[in-house]
């Protein structure tokens, strides 16, 4: 395969990664890393660098459309970013201390549990109308959005900011430690623990993953993990795909988003377990 074949085929794969990544709020890395390592046999360090680029591309590409449709809860997203970016920075300096392999296993188990928890909530998509969460009330993290699929404005209240913050810190930590998108923990944290509607969770996660990824992007750049010939087609393809994914999110039913998310989460969880048990 010559460089031009590589660039063109990788750009096409990246479009698909962008659509899926922005639809479920996980970022394109879910698709990009396995494709680069398994199909193209690219060095894992470079694949992780490309994954960071794809996560930022998903986030920024989808955001313009999302924010306009007011699905993203910007206040909640910014608030939770306090925990995520702190986790991401501390994770970058804990890499040498913590056993990566055990973390993969632990994370695989956590994701398996959260995919189960997300699946179990599939029939209870009613947003909360009241909240006694002091932090959420103080910062006014509640919101509403227009759902084009249901053709009505849906308002919701936020609860569980404390477990939410704890989960977000862990999300930032593992994304820096294991080089995976932190959306896998962010969406369940917002959906299950904080009771944001599924579409809002996905859109807000999409907003947040870009900021979290940016917090570790500097380190990846200096370590020489961002190879231009890989990053160029990934960035361009994912950006294009993400704008489509963002449009699709508005139209499909919440249950569909949830089910796609659960399937993707199960796949990542198996991938993590495999990396931890048979490296």
């Amino acid at each position: 395969m010559t460089p031009i074949d590589f660039v063109v085929s990788l750009a096409l794969v990246s479009v698909a990664a962008g659509v899926l990544g922005s639809l479920v709020g996980l970022g394109g890395g879910v698709v990009i890393v396995p494709v680069l390592t398994l199909l193209y046999h690219v060095d894992i360090r470079l694949a992780i660098g490309a994954s960071i680029v794809s996560v930022i591309a998903t986030s920024s590409g989808a955001a313009a459309a999302y924010v306009r449709e007011r699905m993203t809860n910007l206040r909640a997203g910014m608030f939770l970013e306090v925990a995520t970016t702190t986790g991401a920075v501390s994770g970058a300096y804990l890499t040498t201390v913590l056993p990566t392999q055990a973390l993969f296993v632990l994370f695989g188990v956590v994701l398996a549990y959260s995919s189960f928890a997300t699946f179990r909530r599939r029939h209870t998509d009613q947003p909360l109308t009241v909240s006694n969460d002091r932090i959420a009330n103080y910062f006014d993290l509640h919101g509403s959005y227009y759902d084009p699929a249901e053709k009505r404005e849906i308002s919701y209240k936020v609860v569980g900011t404390r477990p939410g913050l704890a989960l977000m810190y862990v999300a930032g930590l593992v994304s820096a430690l294991l080089g995976i998108g932190s959306g896998a923990l962010k969406v369940p944290a917002m959906d299950s623990a904080m009771h944001l509607p599924m579409k809002v969770s996905s859109a807000t996660s999409n907003f947040m993953i870009g900021v979290t990824a940016a917090a570790s992007a500097g380190v990846y750049f200096i370590r020489g993990q961002i190879d231009p010939i890989i990053a160029a087609p990934v960035a361009a393809g994912v950006l294009l795909g993400a704008t489509f994914g963002a449009r699709i999110l508005g139209r499909v039913a919440s249950t569909t988003v949830r089910l796609v998310f659960v399937v993707v989460l199960v796949v990542i969880s198996l991938e993590m377990l495999q990396k931890g048990i048979f490296p």
Binding site: V53, I56, A57, S59, S60, A63, G210, V211, A213, A214, A217, F221, I226, P228, I229, A231, A232, A235
Partner: peptide
Amino acid sequence: VVLGVLVLILTPVLR
């Protein structure tokens, strides 16, 4: 290309 990727990396920071 690297310059373009850095601009992309900076978009969330700018945001």
